[in-house]
Design a binder for these strands. Structure first.
Lengths: 152, 152
DNA sequence: TGAATGCGTGTTATAGTATAACGTAACATA
DNA sequence: TATGTTACGTTATACTATAACACGCATTCA
């Protein structure tokens, strides 16, 4: 989907990125959390919590749901992964440095997801929130459809 | 939240609206579907599927999950209700005539939801989809935060 | 030193959300 | 009346997520 790339690089840079960020912020990117993050990035599509759980099980037999959900919560909270509410699935954040409003293009064909940022969109959302005297704290914008490749 | 109103009127007009729409489109708004729609509208906030199930049980003892989900699917498909993915809950659509991109202001304080439409936002979403050669089919835009009243 | 605290994780149990699969009833139409 | 279609009933199960409590380990500070 979208564009091809060497995905190992993705994973690697995502992990080292995360380490830097946690270092700077004084957060503990424990082994468990790192493994979960790695598994989120391992495929380039959205990943289900229970799939992570299964894969985690290969190494540490005792993984149970809370193990995974707690790690995901940590990663979410610090902007390292996003949850796609329309899929109940998780993706790695592709630019975790910036505090950003992002939106997701979710392809129904190849099940891949692209994360995007866009000033116009952000402004539009903020200004319409203002209109309603509404103070936004978190925003979910998920666009399902077909990517260029799959719509052919 | 937002503004007060006589909610009975809401329910009533939503139901008669739905009847008209189904009439025109040749859809069958059965008793069950109508009751589910009524229960979605009964509170002015988002409603959970299993809450509908419970209330349905009062009258027709045999309601089971598929009963409710099937009705909700029907109502969703024809634009009479929306699902809020970030809450796993459902709200009645406040303007089911128009095919529209809508977004939701979800108040964490009073748990009420306002549905809005906005051309600027719609355009922004479409144009950014275009940029990525992405063909959108369904859009989820949910903004959580505090409404005017609750942010005081 | 050791009590107190906080945090991350393990573990058990359970809550909450949703669908598959199959059967039957109700309706529409020829 | 036969036929196909749609809606609904029913049972079972899958999938998603959290509560609650226990344990270990690091930090701190009296």
């Amino acid at each position: 989907m979208f564009e091809s790339h060497f995905h190992n690089e993705c994973i690697h840079s995502a992990l080292s990125n995360a380490e830097k960020i946690c270092m700077v912020k004084g957060l503990r990117l424990t082994d468990l959390r790192k493994r979960v993050l790695e598994l989120v990035w391992a495929s380039h599509g959205p990943v289900k919590a229970y799939d992570i759980l299964d894969k985690l099980g290969d190494k540490s037999a005792s993984a149970k749901p809370p193990t995974v959900y707690r790690s995901l919560d940590f990663l979410k909270e610090h902007g390292l992964v996003h949850k796609l509410n329309s899929l109940n699935a998780y993706v790695g954040c592709s630019h975790p440095h910036e505090r950003h409003v992002c939106y997701f293009l979710i392809c129904k064909g190849c099940h891949q997801v692209k994360e995007c940022c866009n000033r116009t969109l952000t402004k539009a959302i903020n200004s319409t929130s203002d209109e309603h005297h509404f103070r936004p704290s978190s925003i979910t914008l998920e666009i399902e459809g077909l990517c260029e490749h799959c719509s052919k």
